[in-house]
Amino acid sequence: MIEVKNITKTFDGRIVLNNISALFEDGKANLIIGRSGSGKTVLIKNIIGLMTPDSGEILYDGRNFLNMSKSDLKLLRREMGMLFQGSALFDSMTVLENVMFPLDVFSKDSARERRKRAEFCLDRVNLSDSGHLYPSEISGGMMKRAAIARAIALQPKYLFCDEPNSGLDPKTSLIIDDLIYSITKEYKMTTVINTHDMNSVMNIGDNIIFIKEGIMEWQGDKHQVITSNNKALNDFIFASDLFRKVKEMENNQEEG
């Protein structure tokens, strides 16, 4: 479980995150949603330590992330996996070497065991035949899957995904969503996903946090999204005709 308490972050006097508090629960897909520039990426970067908040607390199962010693921080890092928007696979390494990288850094297992674990992870994301290829030789969807394999190589307790569906077609997006969701349930991870993909919201949104202009505007789950009366949330979620019609149908069904 990750708890964010009163996080504030400013850039050159401009408030990007304004006193945000949220709870990201175990074994759930926790989604951070909001318009571009709303502060989603800044929030996730603060949670994972790529940025430091001006004030507030970040607790990983009660451990204060911002006051940790270097050695404790290193131990915590071992429990974190991250899927970046652009996959961030290392160009100079093959897919298998990419997945082996965190194992090479942290694991004390033999080279053969590390390789076996990496191959298992690649198999888990259906990439067992692509380990020898370089990132430039595989498609965007395969890159995301390889990045997921790398993120889960150390069996992390916390998985972070920054816009996992960006640049993917709808079908591949669903595959990636399903994969992240099933892995979350399988390993009982605390998964935090930063997205503005409405299909993801409807499919895997166990816990959804809606941010507007740096302020946490709404929190709920995928069922509550449909029935919410929050205007800002409705303007964001139901911006397209399709989703507006879905909402109307759901509401009519409930009334009927």
Binding site: R77, A88, F90
Partner: peptide, 14 residues
Amino acid sequence: MRVTEQIDAIEIMG
């Protein structure tokens, strides 16, 4: 590596 977040990925791993 910096603009494609590969350096961030390394940092995240500690």
